[in-house]
Nucleic acid binder design. Structure first.
Length: 856
RNA sequence: GGGCGAAUAGCUCAGUUGGUUAGAGCAUCCGGUUUACACCCGGAAGGUCGGGGGUUCGAGUCCCUCUUCGCCCA
């Protein structure tokens, strides 16, 4: 006990204490506690294939602040950490890192070693299983780096509760939840127009869309009617061969005579009907448009609502299909089709435009335009729409009733900040299709599904063979379905695996079920689910938050967590979101080693929930200064016997010894701080909790300690009062600061207390501060008079040591009466060598002080 | 075009239910080195609270409108 270092430093605290916490299991979850005693957190699993930037550091700190507060409040905190290693980001990283690509047609090589000198441009094809092994290898390395960073930052997660989104448990949960969705009719497969990324060759869900400006040109093209040409305007003339109708607004008088008739398409000579639909815009272009299968999402709506035929000419590789479709019979049309077959849409467009010019069907020159096109958020070519068979999960996109139910679930959740709820409501109400969950990728969780092959070797999609829940996790690509031998794979009369993997969100949406042990550990599940808190970024409300609500609603008929806390972004000084592609990312390692984890956490805590916060390195210094101040002030308060007669003597913690008015007033004010900080934390407002605590702490150091310094040296009742007030106040303040500055507070705690401060109880006025009440403004009054005395010396440009030879204090009588209770401390701290003169004046605000420094 | 949010000191932000002279930190300038701390302390300067209109005895705060910025969605 009482081992206060001579010169305390911040360096090395992270290494020392994070190791100690791991060793002692400081944050280990005790599952013997009851549901009421447990606070469970649904941590976002960061994408390990990316890199962490300060934005992550900030938002994970926000969660940790709440976790530490709840723990000190006596809750047993269930705080797992996951890694999102599943999905396309990992595939891309593996391709670049090892210089390989997945070719599912290749056989597995047992002792495969990737190229020595990876060349991302010339990727070596490897089997699917080899590819997945490489994925697993790389994510393991990445995950260690991430864990180290989180440990340094001081996240109080229980590292025994670790999960990965590609791990077995995640596979079991994802597959089981999917099978149950199928059983209840919530998951189904459908052959339907699907948004398709031609680069990645995969289907893309609505939530993954990103609308971007894309250059194009309007082409004014003539269709041939009985009474002359009908001009339409299109940005995609290469789709003329896929045209199924011309569409105009029902009230458009120009085209009303044509409704019900047919016109002939240019170049291909296909007869297409002219039909009316209310969503055609009369004042856009010529007011009549061609509907193709499929140029954009509007085409899909028209195709569906007007029951038009499907005339697809674009394949999944984004190229024109090789064989001429049966609806083209015109000789010249077949000739042109032969020319564009197999070409990219870009080339096909050029060829088509040339042909239109030649035939005279192009009116004028194409007019350049910027149009909004849908992109896969990770892709760089506009999405095509192709007809494919995909799995879907109901999410309300096709059911107003389900939408209503999901919006109502949003109401059951407490949102921090509250206005974020409208983002969820908005998203749900704007849904226009169910959730597409199949992806044509490799590193993901496979569908636990096979299909029978008929005598001709054709799959029977209508009667999928589903895996038994007991057999999960299952990899249909390497395991045969029940009742089949693996030799029957791909054989007529045999079976084939569903080749797809589940959307990464189809796993992430189940993080509560994964961590809480759904069906695996019913006791744990009962104690942790529904969870207490989902912390996450506001940018993924439509994806992660929404899909988690969907799964929980479908599976459990309830909400997945009672609170959702949304963190803002850290933006660069120009208020732009940090992103790798913009090159404005700030890497956390350097910041952490330069300023220390406590300083970085302090800065993170200053960003209020939901609010974006610009990154400013200068702010870190302030946090570091606070951490340093905690060390020094604590050292002073706990100083060695010989210096101040203080020590870590437990007797000093006895509130009865506090008798002096100023000490009582300081503690009274501290009681207000405890009340405010606690209320703020209860409302998840860590920023306010820090603000009030920090403000008090600086006043405590700069005013209170300065005022009492002299008296504390004395060996009488006044000295004892000060010493006891010191340690009482320090104990409470360290605990108030512990969530923010876990390292420095733990360090100081270890000088004079047993056990970890992070398992110490949150301050409570009823048990920690039982001293009698004193007007809490006394501290501020005494401080303000002292400040005026110092100011007088500062103005006179004399040393603060200079005695004051004349002091007159003017204030209302009431204020003077209060001030007099602590005047001895003021006089001592201000080096006043005379008795102060008091002037009662009811018209004076606050205090008017006239102080004259003695002539030097 | 729709939804949500933001606009207060050079910068980052507080500012409860309208109520004296709008606050803090950083940066700047001036002064101080008293044995916890120079990774320190004190002081000063710095604002027509985005513009306009309205309600009110009184508006940074409430209402209307406009402008600019951010995020999400069309």
């Amino acid at each position: 006990m009482n081992t206060v270092p001579e010169k305390p430093v911040l360096e090395g605290l992270e290494a020392t204490w994070s190791a100690r916490w791991a060793e002692q299991g400081t944050y280990a979850f005790d599952r013997s506690k009851s549901r009421e005693e447990i606070f469970s957190i649904d941590t976002p699993p960061p994408t390990v294939s990316g890199s962490l930037h300060v934005g992550h550091v900030f938002s994970y700190t926000h969660t940790d602040l709440i976790a530490r507060y709840q723990r000190m409040r006596g809750k047993e905190v269930f705080y797992p950490m996951g890694w999102d290693d599943n999905g396309l980001p990992t595939e891309r990283r593996v391709q670049n890192f090892f210089g390989v690509r997945c070719d599912p047609s290749l056989p597995y090589e047992a002792d495969y070693t990737p190229p020595d000198k990876p060349d991302a441009k010339r990727q070596v094809p490897v089997s699917r299983r080899n590819f997945i092994e490489l994925c697993n290898r790389l994510v393991e390395e990445d995950e260690l780096v991430f864990e180290q960073l989180w440990r340094t930052l001081g996240l109080s997660v229980d590292w025994n509760q670790k999960y990965t989104t590609i791990g077995d448990e995640s596979q079991v949960v994802s597959q089981r939840a999917f099978l149950r969705n199928v059983a209840r009719g919530e998951a189904y497969q459908q052959d339907a127009p699907t948004l398709w990324d031609v680069t990645y060759q995969t289907a893309v869900a609505q939530a993954e869309l990103e609308a971007r400006e894309y250059p194009g040109a309007y082409h004014r093209v003539a269709f041939h009617g009985a009474d002359g040409p009908i001009h339409i305007e299109t940005t995609r003339p290469e789709l003329i061969g896929a045209c199924v109708a011309l569409i105009a607004h029902p009230d458009d008088e120009r085209y009303q005579p044509l409704f019900g008739t047919t016109v002939r398409s240019p170049l291909f000579g296909v007869e297409v009907p002219v039909v009316a639909h209310a969503s055609a815009e009369p004042d856009k272009g010529s007011g009549i448009v061609m509907c193709c299968t499929f140029g954009d999402l509007t085409d899909v709506i028209w195709w569906r609502e007007l029951q038009l035929p499907n005339r697809t000419i674009i394949g999944r590789d984004g190229r024109i299909l090789p064989d001429a479709p049966e609806w083209i019979s015109d000789e010249a049309g077949l000739g042109l089709y032969a020319e564009i077959a197999g070409k990219t849409t870009f080339t096909a467009r050029e060829l088509t435009v040339a042909a239109l010019k030649e035939s005279g069907d192009l009116d004028g020159d194409p007019k350049p335009t910027q149009r909004m096109a849908n992109f896969y958020e990770r892709g760089d070519k506009p999405l095509e729409i192709v007809s494919t068979r995909q799995w879907y999960i109901a999410n309300g996109g096709r059911s107003a009733e389900l939408r209503k139910a999901l919006v109502a679930r949003g109401d059951e959740i407490d949102w921090v900040p509250t206005y974020m709820q409208s983002r969820l409501t908005n998203w749900i109400e704007g849904l226009n299709g169910d959730w597409l969950v199949s992806r044509q990728r490799f590193f993901g969780i496979p569908f636990p599904v096979w299909y029978r092959l008929d005598a001709a070797g054709e799959p029977d999609y209508d009667a999928p063979i589903l895996a038994d829940e007991a057999s999960l996790p299952v990899d249909p690509a390497s395991q045969a379905p029940p009742g089949f031998e693996d030799s029957q794979r791909g054989e007529p009369g045999g079976f084939m695996a569903d080749p797809d993997v589940l959307d990464t969100w189809a796993t992430s949406s189940l993080t509560p079920q994964i961590v809480c042990g759904w069906e695996r550990d019913p006791e744990l599940f009962a104690k942790t689910f529904p969870m207490d808190l989902r912390p996450q970024g506001h940018d993924i409300i439509r994806t992660w938050l929404f899909s988690t609500v969907v799964r929980s609603h479908l599976e459990h008929g309830g909400i997945p967590w009672s609170h959702a806390a949304l963190s803002g972004f850290v933006v660069d000084p120009d208020r732009k979101k940090m992103s790798k592609s913009k090159g404005n990312v700030v890497v956390p390692d350097e910041i952490l080693s330069t300023y220390g984890a406590d300083a970085v956490r302090w800065r993170a805590a200053g960003a209020r929930p939901g609010a974006d916060s610009p990154f400013d390195e200068a702010q870190m210094k302030v946090g570091r200064r606070l951490a340093m101040k905690v060390l020094n002030a604590s050292k002073f308060v706990l100083a060695a016997e010989e210096a101040y007669g203080l020590g870590a003597d437990a007797a000093h913690l006895d509130p009865v010894r506090v008798t002096e008015a100023l000490d009582l007033a300081m503690l009274s004010r501290l009681r207000l701080v405890v009340t405010e900080a606690t209320a703020a934390f209860e409302a998840y407002d860590y920023a306010t909790a820090l603000e009030v605590t920090e403000k008090f702490f600086w006043d405590f150091c700069d005013d209170y300690l300065e005022l009492v310094k002299e008296r504390a040296r004395r060996d009488d009742a006044g000295g004892a009062s000060a010493k006891s007030a010191f340690v009482l106040a320090l104990s409470v303040q360290l605990r108030l600061l512990a969530p923010f500055l876990p390292y420095v507070t733990e360090e100081v705690w270890s000088w004079w207390q047993e056990g970890s401060i992070h398992r110490a109880p949150w301050p409570d006025n009823g048990t920690d501060l039982t001293t009698s009440e004193q007007d809490p403004t006394l501290l501020a009054s005494a401080a303000s008079v002292l400040a005026d005395i110092r100011g007088a010396k500062s103005v006179a440009k004399v040393s603060q040591k200079t005695p004051i030879s004349s002091l007159t204090i003017t204030a209302t009588k009431d204020r003077l009466d209060v001030l007099r209770l602590a005047i001895a401390d003021v006089v001592a701290a201000g080096r006043v060598s005379v008795d102060p003169v008091y002037v009662a004046d009811s018209s004076v605000e606050s205090f008017m002080v006239q102080a004259t420094p003695a002539a030097v």
